[in-house]
Write a protein that binds this DNA or RNA. Sequence first.
DNA 1: CCATGTGAATGCGTTCACAGCC
DNA 2: GGCTGTGAACGCATTCACATGG
Lengths: 219, 219
Amino acid sequence: MPDTISEPARERLLQLMRLLENHILAGNTGPGYKSAVTSAQVEHLTGWPRDTIRKDISCLGMAAGGVEGGSIGGNAGYEPELLIPLIKRALGLDRRRKFCVVGLGRLGSAYLNFAPPELAEFELAAGFDTNVNRVEILKSPAPLYPVYKMAEVISRLGIEIALLCVPAEAAQSAAEKCAAAGIRGILNYAPVALALPPGVTVRNVYVVDELRSLTIKIK
Amino acid sequence: MPDTISEPARERLLQLMRLLENHILAGNTGPGYKSAVTSAQVEHLTGWPRDTIRKDISCLGMAAGGVEGGSIGGNAGYEPELLIPLIKRALGLDRRRKFCVVGLGRLGSAYLNFAPPELAEFELAAGFDTNVNRVEILKSPAPLYPVYKMAEVISRLGIEIALLCVPAEAAQSAAEKCAAAGIRGILNYAPVALALPPGVTVRNVYVVDELRSLTIKIK
DNA sequence: CCATGTGAATGCGTTCACAGCC
DNA sequence: GGCTGTGAACGCATTCACATGG
């Protein structure tokens, strides 16, 4: 059990977590059910070698719910209800983190009121826009502010993540403001590559890039 | 110059391409300008070590536009206009590929009419939905079909990529139909982990997963 | 001098192989 | 028998170090 988990392994554990969640939602669990999931099943569902999966899980610390031995007993494999919390803890997903929406156009304002149960892991703490009208008119469960208050609000509330939904031209400048205010991660919906100081992680979400990425993988 | 480019390198080249594109759009190029981009600049913008960047570019084959030598002469670094086509060819992005939209709800129907210039690299060839009404009523630049014609249309037109915009419950089944029809890559907007035969690549796009992924990276 | 290009060395994640357990 | 857990071997991407060129 290494004390640090490699980044590819973390990404796999994340996906595995969703797999287990869906497994539970599908009702394939509960008393009397063959609720446990084996590494072989995960291999079949994801394509990752089972050795890799077992190693990933072993990083979570011993007694990850892995029941050694007999399928005869009917309880080989991992219990989703046991494994999910362990993954969450190891990945730092056990704490509720604050995020904000920057740019309240079509996309940004949609996210203000987007609240599936899973999103409850995160707390929408604020929304920002340069247009003061929008800030005053829009309905939102979280407080909205004009953009000049961004630095103050972000650092005061301890917001860690920003959904960047501003137009392409404004993205770099807005991202820099976020970074300066203490944002640690940015979900960037603008089709530009952001240049930010180390310590700020960026994830780009843009259809064209996703299509390109798919293309280079199927080649 | 290895004859195969590693997957991490391909991903970096993809991002580099966008960087160069934005560089051109920003007008930092043209006659008289210091249009060339050096590996040191890319390191500053992306955080990747310059050695890695140079190695990635060297995979594209010799004369990638890399001007060896003097910053005195004013022409060190790589010419975006020269480098971009090389990256496209190496990554298989020089051919126009067909894609389709499966599920024409809010998101799916939005993509039907989403056509930024960059998306011209891909050809929207069809849209599908179980609801025959939608198929007949919706305005779209591409032909729309009821879902039972999916297999036939996809294989006849040679569609390679699918944007999967159906509800979570329908995702797995729809994805299997795509795979059976010959789809090579799926952009999955449903919050479920799809199980598909090898040979079909899946990329998941879901806010909660993106937020989680960011969280584990900033930890 | 600073930049690219590239073989050699390092480091790290994956894969193998086996021990333990039901 | 099948499954988990884990140290050891392998392979590959990154990093170093130097040759080359303006």
